[in-house]
């Protein structure tokens, strides 16, 4: 999985959280699978390990990751939780999309057509 950090946009730990969440809901990171150690992840994406640790801790708090004492950190096995997160993310992106499209004054009709077109193209 590629995690690209953009230093010009906001807190790095939030970016890492966002990228990991996407990887989990997309299924790139399987449920119950062990995730990279903080140190390895930090080296891989080129950020401070404490920042990665903070992202992991936040994800644990949100229930996306589970840490098992002495064994490491794992993706949650709670499929429902992942499904919920997926919907949450989708809702977020949809809202963002809706907002921006509204700003340039495009009607709902045109928007739906556009969406359909994009979805078809990507299939």
């Amino acid at each position: 999985m590629e995690i690209k950090i953009d230093i010009s946009s906001g807190a790095i730990y939030l970016q890492i959280m966002d990228r990991i969440k996407r990887a989990i809901v997309r299924g790139d990171w399987k449920t119950g699978e062990q995730v990279m150690s903080v140190r390895d992840m930090a080296i891989k994406i080129g950020v401070n390990p404490n920042t990665v640790a903070r992202a992991y801790a936040e994800l644990e708090r949100e229930g996306m990751l589970v840490s098992k004492r002495g064994m490491g950190t794992f993706v949650t096995e709670d499929a429902k939780k992942i499904e919920e997160e997926k919907e949450k993310l989708a809702a977020q992106y949809a809202e963002r999309f809706g907002k921006e499209i509204k700003e340039i004054g495009i009607s709902v009709n045109v928007m739906t057509k556009l969406l359909n077109k994009i979805v078809k193209e990507n299939e």
Binding site: I12, Y13, L14, T51
Partner: peptide, 8 residues
């Protein structure tokens, strides 16, 4: 401050 806190 913490780097991420400052960024936020």
């Amino acid at each position: 401050g913490k780097a991420d806190d400052l960024r936020e």
